[in-house]
Write a protein that binds this DNA or RNA. Structure first.
Lengths: 213, 213
DNA sequence: AACTTATACTAACAATTGTTAGTAAAAGCA
DNA sequence: TGCTTTTACTAACAATTGTTAGTATAAGTT
């Protein structure tokens, strides 16, 4: 890892725990293994480090999303894919995504950083709400709307259904944020949630066939 | 308001936005209208202010809860009370509680303060998770268990049902934290959630009578 | 090899930090 | 009233802050 990347990483690590103001340039430099003045060869000032951290970690996050994304050329192949997976496979997929958000070094630290700084900086507050609340809800709403339209899910308001799916995930992230030793408990609670959610909202194939007659 | 209370209030207000480290003794003193050295007539040091803020605001919060609490002498009078209120009344009660958490000056600032400081201070992290996650979930789990046992709610895991009820509230608090102008939207989303929740989990009286035969 | 650019260093700066000592006025109490 | 305690003030402190100037070395380019 080059010096610039190291600075980004170490600053992200420190900011995400103590917050922007509580971390000094000297602490960051020390973690990187250089003197504080050398930081200024890579960044304009302290604020610039924070800006670049958010910018670049978000870019990293979005490109990660692109890689796991289902190709969206066909209008409802997401729904078709969903037909072909069992409840257990779906649980495993949800668990993997949850653990990614909970434990991925960069994304979990970014979430904590934005969480910490959301009130002190309006732009960061907007970013936090967009990335970790509104954007996720909107994406899920769109998918759920397709599931409702194709009869895979029961009738209802797609947004509220997205809220019902994502909110427990959101809460569990904060509940188990600082407790890596309780990871198994976290996964268990998540699976209980997803199972119950499926039982409530998902139409089984028999129901769907009856409906299609 | 006496000087000591003023310090508590102004420090809470500042800490809850910028975080503990970013706020200076001089800023707090300035808001109160005194010089920085006078602070030390009321608190041992800066850390002491933070400790007392959390301690006393929590006390304030718990005593508020006591006042709205249903008397828990009889083992299932919560359930009986729940029978006598309509869905609309229940919606209004939920809305009021939600708005209390979202807008009460002290409790909303305390939540933001604990949110901001949860990662930098292990004890605060524990307090945050206990007060705003675990404690709420446990309380609701107990109530829901009674509702399940008495047939007012459908069978299922009470903890997961509590998670399904509280998580959207938790998320909405953060979604609308900094947006007082969107309060109506927040209430609407909350009501959609609670309505849907009732439709899913609550047995109507007809179902209940059938079950009791 | 000569030259340019990037990077790291030492040293220093002005400003700000939490905190203390000493003092005078105000409040509470006998 | 006189006495004690509380509270607010001024002034100062040592430490730490973000940042800059100047310099030497390493890396990259021609």
């Amino acid at each position: 890892m080059k010096t610039r990347e190291k600075i980004i990483y170490e600053a992200l690590s420190l900011f995400s725990v103590h917050g922007y103001d509580a971390v000094t340039i000297r602490e960051i430099a020390s973690k990187v293994g250089i003197k504080e003045s050398s930081i200024y060869n890579h960044f304009k000032n302290k604020q610039d480090i924070l800006n670049k951290i958010i910018e670049e970690t978000l870019k990293r996050y979005y490109s990660t999303l692109e890689n796991v994304k289902v190709p969206e050329s066909e209008d409802d192949n997401v729904s078709e894919l969903y037909d072909n997976i069992t409840d257990d496979t779906f649980l495993d997929i949800c668990t993997k995504i949850f653990l990614f958000y909970l434990k991925d070094d960069y994304i979990s630290k970014l979430r904590r950083l934005l969480t910490i700084e959301q009130y002190g900086n309006e732009e960061i507050g907007e970013t936090f709400r967009y990335v970790f609340i509104d954007r996720v809800l909107e994406t899920q709403r769109q998918v759920l709307q397709k599931f409702i339209d194709s009869g895979r899910f029961i009738q209802g308001d797609a947004y509220t259904m997205a809220l019902h799916f994502y909110s427990p995930v959101f809460l569990l992230l904060y509940k188990y944020d600082n407790c890596p030793e309780n990871e198994e408990q976290a996964i268990m609670e998540l699976k209980m949630h997803v199972s119950q959610y499926n039982a409530i909202y998902r139409r089984n194939s028999i129901e769907r066939e009856e409906r299609n007659l």
